[in-house]
Design a protein around this nucleic acid. Structure first.
Length: 558
DNA sequence: CTAGGGTTAG
């Protein structure tokens, strides 16, 4: 059985198990453990129940495996049931069992209270007990407590090993504490763990998350040993910072003989999405297909987003339709794609289809459908979803959702209603909610309300250039040139310039990038000729061109 | 037949 299990041949191991005339605890346990180690948690649980039914008494080995299965199933009820049985059978003396119980409670419970209780009651703690507790806090997003337990571990002179350092580094990364991060890196060197791959990979990840590029690069270069995870960490890190560098690293990695896996492709596809490079994205998709990763959930989700952001919504849908199983992220990515392409109706239909298929919506998918409604002018549909999110789905609207609804109302000209919504919010509106209102005031020429919104933004976040810029446009449109000049002077004096909104398009392996009013580049004349044509079209279809944006040109005297 | 760590997606 063991030799089959070592090769991952669970079915063959089970055949041997079934043929055994007599099965003792060890045989049962080997099989239970075999299932958990292959991530077949439910089967492990079923076999354990059969074992108990057959009146075979589980031992410490059995319990550690079955707690791991409960952890895998995220089932607190199963875990608590087994814990009761373990106490009844006097397993509390085993540190292995106790650590497994702790781990189970840490992952299955809503709070860390039960895990902490087990930890406090331990007669003897070992290094695993400490790291299990730190991991519990850190993996649920409480890096502060994770670090505090790590500090306590240092104070109590517990044995330090690579495991404790890698999770402590992870905790620093999650709370963004550069100081603690550097201190722990120093301790890693002092303890002689700088040659440990997992520790160094987590330090590399930390510096990438801090956007400390010199440190990240140095760490990468100085690592004596690198594996696939090292490369994946660096590539994922650069994807968040500089996607073109991410693609370059991908080619470097391949030329150094490393074969990319699902993690690599997820990051690289996301990088192509950021850069909106369709041809490159298609090549990456080809690589994914060749290696048989085209059914991996994370990879395909990244592809949906990639095609949508590269302007090819049809292929997004194709990838989406070809998926065997979809999760919430798949549906959301598709809806965001539809929304940004102006297909509000399709996004709404997809939302309903998703709910019918039994997936429970969360805040982000509501944001996707609301923003799709907003951009497609589906105001009533949007408002209906906004109301059902609390009444039918028990999802609490956050700042971003309120921002979407303010935008939904504001875009369609119902600015007073949008303001009313802000006034009745159960939480204090943040600058992005006010920003949505300010945008609506600019579009619908409401200088008074616009000034109020801008004041709120500047109270919450002083020196927000974007607010001043919008305000100046509102003044200009209102003919308040004195106020306009004052605001412009303020903007000039601020120094922290608002970065210009930039667009780019890839045509035949060449990326063309431009900002509003750009006069650089060899194609300028043709671009402006097309623009003239479009304006002519707009006028013919009785669209009133918005001339507010021409302020900047007037200033230049053009 | 035992436990704990490092990289992906909206």
């Amino acid at each position: 059985m063991k030799s089959y299990l070592d090769q991952g041949l669970v079915k063959d191991a089970r055949l041997v198990f079934d043929e055994m005339p007599h099965r003792d605890v060890v045989a049962w346990t080997a099989m239970v453990e075999g299932y958990t180690s292959c991530n077949h948690h439910t089967q492990s649980w079923v076999l354990f129940s059969e074992m108990v039914k057959n009146e075979v008494t589980p031992n410490a080995f059995t319990f550690t495996s079955v707690f791991k299965a409960c952890k895998g199933m995220k089932s607190l009820s199963c875990g608590a049931l087994v814990h009761g049985l373990a106490i009844k059978l006097g397993m509390e003396g085993s540190i292995y069992v106790e650590n497994a119980v702790m781990d189970m409670y840490a992952t299955c419970c809503a709070t860390m209270d039960d895990a902490c209780q087990v930890f406090r009651d331990l007669c003897v703690k070992n290094a695993v007990s400490w790291t299990t507790l730190i991991t519990g806090f850190t993996h649920r997003g409480d890096g502060y407590m994770g670090l505090r337990v790590f500090q306590q571990m240092l104070q109590e002179d517990a044995e330090l090993n690579p495991f404790s350092f890698s999770i402590a580094v992870r905790a620093c990364a999650s709370i963004g504490s550069r100081t603690s991060g550097r201190q722990i890196q120093a301790a890693v060197i002092k303890c002689g763990f700088e040659s440990n791959l997992a520790v160094m990979n987590s330090i590399l990840d930390m510096y990438c998350r801090f956007t400390c590029l010199p440190e990240a690069n140095q760490c990468f270069l100085e690592m004596s040993e690198k594996n696939l995870i090292t490369w994946n960490t660096l590539i994922a890190g650069y994807q968040r910072i500089d996607s073109s560098e991410c693609l370059y690293l991908f080619s470097q990695m391949e030329s150094q003989g490393f074969s990319p896996n699902c993690f690599t492709f997820s990051s690289v596809a996301a990088g192509c999405a950021d850069l909106a490079v369709l041809a490159c994205g298609q090549q990456v998709h080809g690589g994914i297909f060749r290696r048989g990763f085209n059914q991996n959930l994370e990879v395909t989700n990244a592809l949906i987003d990639m095609y949508a952001k590269c302007g090819n919504i049809a292929d997004s849908r194709k990838v989406f339709d070809e998926m065997c199983d979809k999760n919430l992220v798949s549906w959301t990515s598709m809806m965001i794609g539809y929304g940004s392409h102006g297909f509000g109706k399709e996004a709404v239909e997809l939302f309903d289809e998703m709910v019918t298929s039994g997936i429970r919506p969360d805040q982000i998918v509501f944001m996707a459908v609301l923003s799709a409604c907003s951009h497609a002018g589906l105001v009533e549909e949007g408002l209906r979803y906004f109301h059902t999110m609390t009444s039918d789905y028990n999802v609490t609207p956050d700042q971003e959702i309120y921002g979407c609804v303010v935008d939904l109302l504001g875009r369609s000209g119902r600015v007073a209603e949008a303001y009313g919504l802000i006034q009745n919010m159960p939480i204090k509106p943040n600058e992005s909610v006010w920003g949505a209102l300010l945008g609506a005031c600019k579009a619908h020429k409401l200088p008074h309300l616009g000034k109020l919104a801008a004041t709120e933004i500047l109270d919450l976040k002083p020196n927000t250039v974007e607010a001043y810029v919008l305000l100046s446009i509102i003044y200009a449109a209102d003919g308040k040139w004195r106020e306009y000049a004052k605001t412009m002077n303020l903007i000039r004096g601020m120094g922290n310039k608002k970065e210009a909104g930039r667009s780019w398009i890839e045509v035949r392996n060449q990326v063309y990038s431009f900002v509003v009013g750009d006069k650089i580049g060899s194609h300028t004349k043709r671009v402006y000729a097309i623009l003239e044509l479009l304006i002519q079209h707009m006028k013919e279809t009785e669209f009133e061109p918005n001339l507010d944006c021409l302020i900047h040109d007037l200033q230049d005297g053009t």
